[in-house]
Design a protein around this nucleic acid. Structure first.
Lengths: 110, 110
DNA sequence: TGAAATTACTACGACAGATGAAGTAAATGG
DNA sequence: CCATTTACTTCATCTGTCGTAGTAATTTCA
């Protein structure tokens, strides 16, 4: 399992990546994160929904409702133009972060 | 520059890595972090010293004073046995974290 | 058919780690 | 001798995560 202090700062990026694939809603996103990480990372519900609110406030995502006759009503989210820009920025930052932290990791200890 | 939310969770590891090289003190460690990261990461003083306290409390490092007739009195730190174990654990965790986050990064956006 | 599990959230409070601001004090450099 | 660098400490604030709890509809399955 992965400590949350590491992922902190990348939860938003993870969510944006999934919304880039397709518009989605809370429950689906949490399943997809677990799936894509091979069960290595399971986001907490409260973490996920507070991330949605943060991203909404910043204008990086938009929420909307679909007409649906079945299932419980869901709030869907889609990524915005500025959300995409933010995501790209974060991707670049991630490459840098990897470089930096790698400098302090001893390969012979793995 | 790198956002602190990413490094958070790895500041302790970075410090332990440097203490593994040799016993050291605050100022020297902060210089060394800047140096090894090619200026890409500069740890804040308060972050550094609060990390020391955390690591001391957990028993991952020990502090001591050297006899010195010159220079301002410094608090030196050395890594402990359990600090080494913790560091190794973090190195393994880092490899996992990289794998997971990489799943959500689009290479075509770099 | 009825109970349990799953889906799909919301609200609230606590906590940890990072950080800004400010201060102290000795040593060194020009 | 004055500014800068070295070497910290204290304190208060902020952000993001997470535990706990609650609501409510829908699906499963015995």
């Amino acid at each position: 399992m992965i400590s949350s202090d590491v992922i902190r700062g990348y939860n938003d990026t993870i969510i944006l990546y999934l919304l880039l694939e397709k518009q989605s809603y809370g429950y689906e996103i949490s399943k997809r994160i677990k799936e894509l990480s091979n069960g290595k990372y399971v986001i907490k519900e409260t973490t996920l929904y507070s991330a949605f609110n943060r991203l909404l406030k910043k204008g990086y995502i938009e929420s909307f409702h679909k007409e649906q006759t079945f299932g419980k009503k869901r709030t869907y989210y889609r990524i915005t133009e500025s959300g995409l820009l933010y995501y790209q920025e974060k991707c670049r930052e991630w490459e840098l972060t990897k470089e930096v932290i790698n400098q302090f990791i001893r390969e012979d200890y793995l």
